[in-house]
Design a protein around this nucleic acid. Structure first.
Length: 142
DNA sequence: GCCAACGTTGGC
DNA sequence: GCCAACGTTGGC
């Protein structure tokens, strides 16, 4: 095993379209359909083994669980050409308690999250400190 | 349902 | 290249 730097990300999903329950059942899924350049560029930076926070937007905005990148960026087959990219993610673990956006907003240590600054971006980096803090708040760190 | 943020489109 | 119009996302 070589030392590898792990990076952290957050992806958004509308639960009516694809939910945390869905990936718990599927175990892995292709993350495609991204049609925003900033989000796409983030997808392309992801490396196998990177950790992803899975966020539900909509009625109960919250972080639900953690996934792992299982395939790095490849052409998105839901459209023509090489303009857009997809990745594959696999279920890792659920948060003991989903972490609502309302709590994230009150946490000083999370106030710089891109989630709070760029409301419409659907794929974004998260720092290791933010990731660890989120696991603390959701009761997943011992 | 409303509205802010912001990306895209198209006229010039 | 600028900018107004319009569409979409997403929180509330």
């Amino acid at each position: 095993m070589s030392l590898k730097e792990i990076n952290y990300w957050l992806i958004k999903s509308e639960p009516e379209v694809y939910s945390w329950d869905n990936i718990m059942f599927d175990k892995k899924t292709i993350w495609d359909g991204i049609r925003n350049y900033q989000a796409r560029n983030n997808l392309r930076k992801m490396k196998t083994g990177d950790q992803i926070l899975f966020y539900h937007s909509g009625k109960k905005p919250s972080i639900c669980g953690v996934c792992t990148i299982s395939k790095e960026a490849f052409p998105d087959r839901t459209t023509d050409g090489a303009n857009w990219s997809a990745i594959e993610i696999e279920f890792n673990f659920s948060l003991n308690k989903p972490l609502p956006l309302s709590i994230i907003k009150t946490e000083a240590s999370l106030k710089n999250m891109i989630l709070l600054k760029q409301g419409r971006l659907s794929v974004m980096p998260v720092t290791k400190n933010e990731f660890d803090r989120i696991l603390d708040l959701s009761g997943n760190n011992k």
